[in-house]
């Protein structure tokens, strides 16, 4: 099948993850991966982002498929239930708002900037080498650390599910995918 430009967006995903090792402020670019799927689903009522443009999905497909890093087994039934998918979405949302709260505390001057990336919402990894000061308020950097934590955590979870199950198993419980599907359902229900 003929390759299109968007079939190479896995490179953008790799570059994004790599840039976070050098300067944490690049984490802000991740807002694109967050906003574009929502905009597509809200305006056109499709999951065009998941279907075509998701670089992360492409990366898992490549590593698990062509590079053979996946066991290619079915995911457990409980992982595809609505309970789990919606529960995971709510959990992700709560963690996201907690990250926003921490950012607010830095902006408000109540809390100092934490130069760490929190992995799996628990483990704080020192990440000071990727922070070289900023012209902006330290709160801007705090958001970058928090957002990169979310992105790195979901990439690691995606890699684990890729290895254990099928290459793109992450798509089944991806909070962005679940959220955009809910928007599409609401939009198609209205028509």
């Amino acid at each position: 099948m003929k390759k299109r430009w968007y079939d190479y967006l896995w490179i953008a995903e790799l570059i994004y993850m790599a840039l976070g090792f050098f300067n944490i402020l690049f984490a802000w670019l991740g807002m694109l991966f967050f906003c574009i799927p929502l905009i597509i689903s809200l305006i056109w009522g499709t999951k065009g982002y998941c279907n075509r443009y998701c670089g992360r999905g492409q990366l898992f497909g490549l590593l698990g498929g062509r590079f053979g890093l996946s066991r290619k087994k079915d995911i457990p039934k409980w992982m595809k239930t609505k309970w789990f998918r919606y529960g995971f979405l709510i959990f992700f949302f709560l963690m996201f708002f907690l990250m926003l709260w921490n950012t607010y505390l830095v902006f408000a001057g109540v809390q100092d900037l934490g130069q760490a990336v929190t992995l799996l919402w628990t483990f704080k990894l020192p990440w000071h080498w990727a922070y070289h000061g900023t012209l902006f308020h330290p709160g801007v950097a705090q958001f970058a650390f928090g957002f990169y934590s979310v992105m790195l955590t979901s990439t690691i979870l995606g890699l684990i599910t890729m290895i254990l199950f099928k290459p793109r198993s992450w798509c089944v419980c991806c909070p962005m995918g679940t959220m955009t599907q809910l928007i599409c359902k609401a939009k198609s229900g209205k028509q």
């Binding site: 689903s41 595809k80 798509c171 928007i183 359902k185």
Partner: peptide
């Protein structure tokens, strides 16, 4: 009921016989 509309099936279909309807 449990399809997540990810579109992986669309990409591999050699006959373009599968589509994602309304993102659902």
């Amino acid at each position: 009921d449990i399809c997540v509309a990810c579109g992986c099936c669309v990409k591999v279909c050699p006959l373009s016989a599968i589509q994602i309807r309304h993102g659902v």
